[in-house]
């Protein structure tokens, strides 16, 4: 007994399909954190800067200080709570002699910054002060802490947004440091 071939009409499902599609797109949208701004600065030249030093007696800090060395430029402030989280990592890294630690004391008060460093330890080889966000804006900094890995030729190689955790270091930054060293050889 052959039943007559009936053409199925799927058009009734269209609204459900449309809804499912939209729900999917919105769900994907929810998983993306808008605070993680794309870093425009990766693989660009370090912007030119010439800033006063935080520590009395230090010379001004400028691009020339970064030449020929791998540098970590860390944006910090005594007002920045999250900076305390990453500080022990920075102190640990300061014992390595293949990386120059550069602090960018951002929108801070000098004496407060010095007191803060006395309390938590000073991991920096050089500290520049950026009271008016001059270099911070050039670097596209949106908040502290942020850390930039600068190659010996002054090229920005990586930007860490938020605290420099052990994981961020070993998974994202250390491999680039090794790659830079390999390039040099």
């Amino acid at each position: 007994m052959a039943t007559p071939e009936k053409k199925r009409d799927w058009s009734a499902l269209a609204p459900i399909m449309a809804f499912a599609g939209l729900a999917f797109l919105l769900a994907v949208g929810l998983t993306r954190d808008p605070r993680l701004l794309p870093s425009e600065m990766i693989d660009r030249e370090m912007p030119s800067f010439d800033l006063p030093a935080l520590r009395a007696g230090d010379a001004r800090v400028s691009n020339a200080d970064l030449e020929g060395q791998i540098s970590l430029v860390n944006v910090f402030g005594s007002w920045c709570a999250a900076c305390i989280v990453e500080h022990s990592k920075l102190v640990e890294l300061s014992f390595r002699n293949d990386i120059q630690m550069v602090g960018l004391n951002w929108r801070d008060n000098n004496s407060a910054a010095l007191r803060w460093l006395a309390q938590y330890g000073d991991p920096y080889d050089l500290i520049a002060i950026d009271t008016n966000s001059d270099l911070a804006i050039e670097l596209g900094v949106t908040g502290a802490p942020e850390t930039f890995l600068i190659g010996p030729n002054g090229q920005i190689r990586y930007k860490q947004i938020g605290p420099l955790t052990d994981q961020a270091w070993s998974e994202n930054i250390e491999p680039i440091v090794n790659a830079i060293k390999a390039e040099a050889n």
Binding site: S39, E138, L139, G140
Partner: peptide, 9 residues
């Protein structure tokens, strides 16, 4: 100028 540093955002 700012877009170059902070992106389209």
């Amino acid at each position: 100028y700012l877009r170059e540093r902070y992106g389209d955002f």
